[in-house]
Simulated assay, not measured.
Amino acid sequence: MTHTVQAKETLFSIAKKYSTNVDQLIKINGLKSNNLFIGQVIKIDFPTPVAPTPTPPAANISVFAQRNVFQVKKENKGSFNNYVLTFPTPNGTVSTGIMRDNYPSTNLANPKGVSYIGQSLFQTNTPLFSDLCQQPFYIDLLHYIAKNEGCFDAINSYDKAIFSFGFIQFTGGLASGSMLTRVLQRFKTKDEYAFNDCFGKYGMNIQNYKTPLFQVETTTGIKEGDAAYLEVANNLPLTTAFIASGFRRSMIRSQVEIALEEYVLKALSPTQMIVINGVNIALNQILRTQGGFALRVDLCVNRGLGGSLIVLKKAIEQVVAESGVTDLSRINEKRVVEIVAQNDVEAWKKQRVLKIIDSGFSFLK
Rank of each mutant, 00 (worst) to 15 (best):
M1L: 10
H3T: 10
H3P: 03
V5L: 04
Q6D: 08
V22F: 03
L25W: 06
I28V: 14
K43I: 09
I44C: 06
P56E: 14
S62Y: 02
S62D: 08
V63G: 01
Q66T: 10
V72L: 13
K74G: 06
K74R: 15
S79T: 14
T86L: 06
G92S: 10
R100K: 12
R100C: 06
D101S: 11
D101R: 11
N107V: 09
A109P: 01
T124C: 09
N125A: 10
L128S: 11
S130E: 14
S130Y: 12
D131W: 09
Q135I: 08
F137I: 15
F137W: 11
Y138T: 08
L141C: 09
F152A: 04
D153C: 01
Y158R: 02
S164C: 01
S176I: 11
G177H: 02
M179T: 15
R182H: 12
R182F: 13
E192R: 08
G200S: 08
K201N: 13
Q207R: 15
Y209C: 04
Y209H: 07
F214I: 04
V216R: 02
T218W: 08
T219R: 07
T220I: 03
A227D: 14
A227V: 06
N234M: 07
L236P: 01
P237A: 03
P237W: 02
A241G: 05
F242V: 10
I243F: 08
A244I: 06
R249P: 01
A259L: 12
A259G: 13
K266G: 07
L268A: 12
I276C: 02
N277I: 00
N277R: 08
V279Y: 04
A282K: 15
C300I: 02
S308A: 15
L312E: 13
L312K: 05
K313W: 04
K314F: 00
Q318S: 15
V319E: 02
E322P: 01
S323L: 00
G324E: 01
V325H: 03
S329R: 09
E333Q: 15
V337F: 00
E338S: 10
A347Q: 14
I356E: 03
S362W: 05
S362M: 03
L364M: 00
